[in-house]
Design a protein around this nucleic acid. Structure first.
Lengths: 248, 248
DNA sequence: CGCCCTGTTGAAACAGATCAACGGAGGTGG
DNA sequence: CCACCTCCGTTGATCTGTTTCAACAGGGCG
């Protein structure tokens, strides 16, 4: 996933800390580094009034909900998943602080998936019509927004590549490395972190079964590539994992 | 794929015919139905000057090419694919008339995949900086553009769902139905069409092998769900195929 | 304490990959 | 125009990774 990403992700800027200002939302943080005036930043603050708390297992939105807001994650983790005709559901991604949720809904004016909190979380509501109005007056913000949507597309393509090409152990290694990069980008450890999702959820996301994930964790642990304790993970050898993902 | 899509795709409008005007590009077609003034349409024409012909197997762009243009397909079919460290490549999608190529590159200012023509094709170059400048002056066009990017995201998610969840025969049925819907949206037959790609390419896209695709074609033909003659396909029972995709 | 949910591990079954052989279509050159 | 070649597609036999089924362990919580 975010392994060899040769490009500057728009996300790091997104999570830059703003200490001085009462910034209501990390959307503001995104926009700070791109040279906005105070007036423009204030406008941004004005449209992003609501903070919303979502408890663990709570739904931020559901499939087919009418599309009104985008949501920027302030704290916590989410999963997005789709439910098909026979009730089976598939997790399309795990989102963390600084990510923008709901972009898939702009097209059809309805949400195309469910977004559920993996832990007690908090988001900023961004009314999309207001945002679009604001964007057209601030070209640099408009551009940044396009980059974020584009980044989402690029990410999804990368995930598809892995679902289609890799064997179970490679997928799982890629999954761990992806989390690693994302935590690193957010200023956390790249090697020690907690899985916020169950084995079952990981398996579902990767198109595998929870048994397979469990076996892989045991196997990786035995080989000495990782330490595992419940959901506590330590990656002992990022390079080897990377090699596994890339190698045939 | 586009099976139960309960939403209005932004694409049909895209391919609406414009008979009266010398519209240089189908991008203009997209924008006609959304109530633009002649002046605004002219502006659009101005930024979309170049038509470009791409021969069969020719590359429209390659991974890591600097991002300058988006490309709207006028005629023909393309595939987009990524190449990983060990040289393996994975097809992330097949594109046809009216689709916009290159949106994955906005984020990192470089193309994240290769786009290659499956047959002699023609595209319109849309310089992105010009487009963005134009968009900010025409809110309705801006909105339409956001819908297109969003649609791309929604599509990719749907494809991921299928890669992760479905068995081989279901994936392949979904693939056929997806083509069916897309041709129908473009005013062609939903049941008779030509596969523009090889078995190998289909297999690669679906995360299977060409042998499996071949077997599935034979099997579907034997059951009486389809007729096949080389790349000529006739879907004899859309509903059954749909049931297969949905059914467990 | 006992229940339920999550995670682990083993053994058997199966879907799809791999290996291999062959047929046919289309293009090229004699 | 035919012979040849190559690429693409088909089909069969075998092999393997992953799923499925099943049993059990541990932790959290009422």
């Amino acid at each position: 996933m975010g392994n060899t990403t040769p490009f500057t992700s728009p996300l790091p800027a997104f999570v830059a800390k703003v200490s001085s200002h009462c910034g209501t939302c990390n959307l503001r943080d995104l926009c700070l580094p791109i040279g906005l005036t105070d007036a423009e930043l204030d406008k941004l603050d004005q449209i992003v009034k609501h903070r919303k708390r979502i408890p663990r297992d709570g739904a931020l939105y559901r499939m087919n909900d009418p599309f009104v807001n985008l949501y920027a994650i302030r704290v916590g983790h989410f999963k997005t998943f789709q439910v098909n005709a026979n009730g089976a559901h598939h997790i399309s991604g795990f989102q963390m602080t600084g990510q923008l949720l709901g972009m898939e809904a702009i097209s059809a004016y309805r949400h195309q998936c469910n977004a559920v909190a993996l832990e007690d979380s908090e988001v900023c509501e961004v009314p999309f019509t207001d945002l679009e109005r604001l964007l057209k007056d601030v070209p640099v913000m408009l551009h940044q927004f396009h980059r974020m949507m584009s980044h989402e597309i690029a990410q999804d393509r990368h995930a598809m590549l892995q679902l289609g090409n890799l064997r179970a152990e490679q997928r799982f290694a890629a999954f761990l490395l992806n989390l690693s990069v994302r935590y690193k980008n957010r200023g956390y450890s790249a090697t020690n972190f907690q899985l916020r999702m169950s084995r079952e959820e990981i398996a579902n996301f990767l198109g595998l079964t929870n048994e397979t994930i469990s076996r892989l964790l045991s196997q990786f642990k035995k080989i000495g590539w990782i330490k595992v304790n419940n959901r506590e993970i330590e990656l002992l050898n990022l390079l080897t994992l990377q090699t596994l993902v890339e190698g045939k």
